[in-house]
């Protein structure tokens, strides 16, 4: 196995995760620089990019120096040559839900960033085509946010008496 140095993560708070080698917590200003450093350190692929809405669960475990915000953009990077994964978690505040797009580094994140925008309303600065991807274009709201309620259709049996 090729040993790769993670100099790209110096100065960035890190933690050991379940099942991966490392989790990095850069802030928004150093987010793209961190990912670019990881790309140079032979992380050839972004396998997954998703978003988490931590509304209602603010007290999660984070390393020192990381302020918990409502949204978190989670990027899973994979190094094929070194056979290891690194996860990057960026805190995104609710009032200014914008992060820089990874499109210019990893074009494969295009659809994933669109999905995160569609589902959470987090905007990706520099994305060439930031439109909704799964929901209809005129849809209001972002469904995977925790304050977006789920609808319910009451079960109605054919022969059941009507509501009293």
């Amino acid at each position: 196995m090729t040993e790769i140095s993670l100099g790209a993560l110096s100065g960035v708070p890190t933690a050991a995760g379940v099942g991966v080698d490392q989790i990095a917590f850069p802030d928004r200003s150093s987010y793209v620089a961190t990912i670019a450093g990881l790309k140079d350190a032979a992380f050839e692929m972004v396998t997954d990019l998703c978003c988490v809405d931590y509304l209602g669960h603010p007290g999660r475990t984070l390393p020192d120096g990381v302020t918990a915000e409502r949204f978190e953009v989670v990027v899973n990077l994979l190094s094929l040559s070194a056979k290891r994964r690194v996860r990057v978690r960026v805190q995104v505040p609710e009032g200014d839900a914008v992060v820089d797009s990874l499109f210019s580094l990893y074009p494969g994140t295009e659809a994933m960033e669109r999905e995160a925008f569609d589902m959470f309303g987090v905007r990706f600065d520099g994305h060439p085509d930031l439109t909704r991807i799964l929901m209809p274009e005129e849809w209001e709201g972002h469904p995977l946010r925790k304050d977006y309620g789920t609808g319910r259709v009451p079960i109605q049996f054919k022969e059941a008496p009507g509501p009293r």
């Binding site: 396998t47 999660r60 475990t61």
Partner: peptide
């Protein structure tokens, strides 16, 4: 228990991953 994890397997179409956060 509280935590987050990313598991991945090789499905017939490629890497199938599951990112799960527990509170």
């Amino acid at each position: 228990p509280e935590g987050e994890v990313y598991a991945a397997i090789e499905s017939p179409r490629g890497e199938l991953g599951c990112y799960m956060v527990s509170d």
